[in-house]
Design a protein around this nucleic acid. Structure first.
Lengths: 118, 118
DNA sequence: CCAATTGTTCAATAACTTTTGAACAAAGGA
DNA sequence: TCCTTTGTTCAAAAGTTATTGAACAATTGG
């Protein structure tokens, strides 16, 4: 049930930056930020990558301390660790998300029309 | 004389993040920021990596648009592209540098005693 | 119980990145 | 001119990360 997460003081700046330096993962974080508070399951990101590959990227985000993943039934509820990140690296997440928002070249979730809402 | 640099609007967020996600390069940027305005030559970073390896990392920083490198004689004068980065990604560089400043685990320039000044 | 849904693991491969040493080049001082 | 300083290039090796498909596991609804 409880997947391994670093605690706040173990979160490493270079690792966070490297993890955010991947366009797929940046798109995931951006989407999580846009729905802040609402936990997402992996399926929400299926237009970004294959199921297997998502599993890989979501594990990277979790292990870096960027996201928190809670297992609920067969689902995983994924949230941004904004509190911890803000405490550890003030302003970083906000500036990354703001910059990502401008970026037309970045992949995005739910770009393919049909926003059926969740 | 003029090495290839991206212009400001070509600077890509994921590439900048990935480039800053390397501890050696983060240490270089941190040092440049600490001496802002004073152009540094490659030799200043020799405690971070070998000459060859520095050449590689400094090229990555330049190609990503993080630094500007000017050839002067046999030296290269390296500066942070703070203006362009701030315009493109407001707050990002500052939060990265501030966070890097806290990080005891990061390599640093001039940690081995003998700050003979330059 | 069975089938569907949701996501993981594993091994393989592909693709990239980092590091190295040897050889080179350009500039400047003696 | 010759030597030193400063940095680059190149090819190779080492290491790391991303992507894939097949097989698996757990939960839930019928």
């Amino acid at each position: 049930m409880t997947l391994p997460h670093p605690n706040a003081d173990q979160i490493s700046l270079p690792i966070v930056l490297a993890v955010l330096g991947d366009p797929t993962r940046l798109a995931i974080v951006r989407f999580l930020a846009s729905k802040e508070g609402v936990p997402m399951n992996c399926g929400k990101f299926l237009d970004l990558a294959s199921k297997t590959n998502l599993s890989y990227h979501l594990a990277k985000l979790r292990e870096a301390g960027v996201t928190r993943t809670e297992a609920v039934g067969t689902s995983r509820l994924i949230t941004l660790r904004r509190d911890d990140l803000d405490r550890r690296f003030p302003g970083l997440l906000d500036s990354v998300i703001a910059a990502a928002g401008e970026d037309k070249a970045l992949p995005a979730v739910g770009t393919a029309d049909a926003e059926i809402d969740a």
